[in-house]
């Protein structure tokens, strides 16, 4: 029993640097494995749509006809399942989070299909 058991701790923290950092003036250090956001290596993508089918939150839309890969940043929960199952390994997890904003953000990425066209021409 006793009073003021915490006073030692409080006195010490009074003369210490703050435990928090001065974000955003001091930039955040991202961890080596931090799951921030999904990035795509567009030329590698074959528009198979596996990522869109397996996404638990339906954040991805892949259109074969329009050759686009679309991600709803606000729906994506960064589980990294698409990165794991992508047959061409063209998706990757970037460390930085999507910047905060006032509105929802959807990124539309056009997939170059030049490679495929040449093979069609060949036939």
């Amino acid at each position: 029993m006793g009073n003021f058991k915490i006073s030692g701790l409080i006195l010490r923290s009074l003369f210490r640097r703050p435990a928090t950092s001065g974000y955003p003036a001091v930039p955040k250090e991202w961890g080596e494995r931090t799951r921030g956001r999904i990035e795509i290596d567009a030329p590698e993508c074959i528009l198979c749509g596996t990522c869109a089918r397996k996404c638990p939150t339906e954040a991805l839309v892949v259109s074969k006809a329009e050759a686009t890969w679309e991600i709803d940043r606000m729906r994506c929960v960064q589980c990294g399942h698409c990165v794991e199952i992508c047959p061409k390994k063209c998706l990757r997890m970037a460390k930085e989070y999507t910047a905060p904003g006032y509105e929802g953000r959807t990124d539309l990425i056009e997939i170059p299909v030049a490679k495929k066209k040449t093979s069609d021409d060949g036939i």
Binding site: G31, E32, R33, R35, C79, G80, M93
Partner: peptide, 12 residues
């Protein structure tokens, strides 16, 4: 948690 799993709260 962030170091080992990549997520502070949801570890996946």
């Amino acid at each position: 948690f962030d170091l080992t799993t990549g997520g502070r709260v949801i570890h996946s």
